[in-house]
């Protein structure tokens, strides 16, 4: 009786959260799956011509931008994530080893996390400005001519470079915070023990710090990969809704898979577009799912809890 009562209470407390999740997460989720299998669904009339198993997926894959989006997403994922994890790790180890001003630096490194991504994107777009940008100014010091990074007619290469720099930087804050918390939890005696045994610094890092931090590293790596697969805000922030430097062709677009989804939604009035958006998001879901699965298997072998 007593147990039943407390059970009831627990469900009652969970109810508000459950209700919100149902309406705003689970319903859209299942609806997306449903939409992806409708043939010629019209958003305006709410009518469809029956069902199709692969029709919408084939439309997405054969779409003009799909290859570009796949390429861009892969580059963002596989370049920005490893770099930002490594940079964050080095910064947090350095931060953890200083005593003075640690709080100040911690705040500085954490600021990007509480700043709007679009605003930072605009700031970065300006940093990479050809004539007034900080980046070209620094290059100038080394005698390198100003580069048109993201301006009128900028190439895909330079635009992607700028985007990656911004993505890496924008992702640092949260990673540093998590790593720093992890580092501060490592027992100081391990380091004292290593010191007594005359362990060189790099070996302390590679044999003690990294393994002891590996649960955090795995967590950060997996969530960062998932986040990077969903990249979109950063590109909007830097390049605006066209998703490419002004005056360039659509083949030079920096569109990602999420960008593809939004593109389709923007054309919702056309028959079948909403279904394509749903199909694209399911493709992204499957890619992310399988990739995360592989990571979990790897991390089981490499992570020491």
């Amino acid at each position: 009786m007593l147990e039943k009562q407390s059970n009831l209470k627990a469900w009652l407390y969970l109810l508000p959260a459950m209700a919100l999740l149902l309406v705003f997460t689970f319903y859209p989720l299942f609806n997306a799956f449903y939409l992806a299998f409708l043939r010629d669904y019209s958003y305006l009339n709410g009518t469809a011509e029956g069902y199709t198993l692969f029709g919408n997926f084939i439309d997405v894959i054969q779409g003009a931008n799909f290859r570009i989006a796949m390429k861009n997403t892969s580059i963002i994922v596989f370049i920005s994530v490893p770099i930002s994890v490594m940079v964050a790790l080095l910064i947090s180890v350095a931060l953890n080893s200083i005593k003075k001003l640690q709080g100040m630096f911690q705040t500085i490194f954490f600021l990007p996390y509480v700043t709007n991504a679009i605003a930072i994107g605009m700031a970065f777009a300006f940093i990479f400005h050809q004539d007034y940008g900080l980046f070209n100014l620094i290059l100038g010091v080394f005698g390198i001519d100003p580069v048109n990074w993201v301006g009128l007619g900028a190439s895909w290469n330079t635009a992607m470079f700028a985007l990656l720099v911004y993505t890496v930087w924008g992702g640092l804050a949260f990673k540093i915070m998590v790593f720093l918390a992890g580092l501060q939890n490592i027992d100081k005696q391990y380091y004292d023990a290593a010191r007594v045994d005359s362990t060189p610094k790099w070996r302390v890092f590679s044999r003690i710090t990294v393994p002891l931090l590996s649960p955090m590293i795995a967590y950060i790596t997996i969530t960062s990969f998932i986040g990077a697969f969903k990249a979109y805000r950063t590109i909007i922030g830097m390049f605006g809704p066209t998703l490419r430097p002004p005056g360039t062709l659509s083949k030079d677009s920096l569109i990602t898979i999420v960008g593809l989804v939004y593109d389709s939604i923007a054309q919702a009035d056309a028959v079948g577009k909403i279904s394509q958006a749903a199909a694209a998001s399911i493709i992204l879901f499957l890619i992310t799912l399988s990739f995360t699965g592989v990571q979990m298997i790897i991390s089981k072998k490499r992570v020491h809890y």
Partner: peptide, 19 residues
């Protein structure tokens, strides 16, 4: 420096590397 003193130290909670 401790590493040059030629000492062996056993810590109170042993400080064995768990991994």
């Amino acid at each position: 420096a401790p590493e040059d003193r030629g000492i062996g130290l056993v810590f109170q909670n042993y400080a064995l590397y768990p991994h």
